[in-house]
């Protein structure tokens, strides 16, 4: 698992609200460092790392949730429903985390089944193990396709820029 990127520019004496706008964009950028690898379904490690980065972003959004219930006092957009928009972005992040989690679960299951078969030293796979390997491969294929479709849809809609704009607003 890749380490979390070091957060820079935090000002402990400044408000929680101001620091949310320093920290959260960096968490978003960490997620996108894995984007070049996601087009190859065999990049298990990178897909897993993207999932971990998304989870870190989700937890950080949760920590700073209260900062987005209240617009900055200098903002003229006081009518914007900040907490509603925050919840929409949060739901997308959660959805991405879940589908990447399903892909990772399949990778773990496949590894466990294969290791077990190897340890047992069987020339041919036991029926039950073989059946589950085939089924899990199929599930992973479908989940990976679903993930890519979601990602492409979000990219086409400019999700990253919208999220970053919102987080620094």
């Amino acid at each position: 698992m890749a380490k979390a990127h070091k957060i820079i520019g935090v000002v402990p004496k400044q408000s929680y609200h101001e620091n949310a706008r320093i920290i959260l964009p960096q968490k978003v950028e960490e997620v996108y460092t894995w984007e070049p690898f996601i087009w190859d379904e065999t990049r298990h490690k990178e897909l897993h790392n993207m999932r971990i980065s998304i989870r870190r972003l989700r937890y950080t959004m949760d920590v700073f949730r209260a900062a987005y219930g209240f617009p900055k006092t200098s903002s003229k957009e006081v009518s914007v429903n900040y907490s509603g928009r925050f919840a929409e972005f949060f739901a997308v992040i959660l959805d991405l985390q879940e589908i990447l989690g399903d892909i990772h679960d399949s990778d773990v299951v496949l590894e466990a089944l294969t290791d077990y078969a190897d340890q047992a030293g069987r020339g041919t796979l036991a029926q039950g193990v073989a059946a589950l390997i085939d089924r899990t491969k199929e599930i992973r294929k479908v989940d990976y396709k679903t993930f890519l479709e979601k990602w492409e849809r979000l990219s086409a809609a400019g999700f990253k820029q919208e999220l970053l704009s919102f987080l620094v607003s």
Binding site: P12, K13, Y16, H17, E18, A20, D62, F64, A66, F70
Partner: peptide, 23 residues
């Protein structure tokens, strides 16, 4: 637990105060 439920957390408090409460 969610941060909004953590007692006394306020967007205008300094980060160091909120950090301690969250942790």
């Amino acid at each position: 637990i969610t941060v909004s439920k953590i007692e006394k957390i306020s967007p205008d408090s300094t980060l160091e105060v909120c950090a301690r409460q969250v942790i």
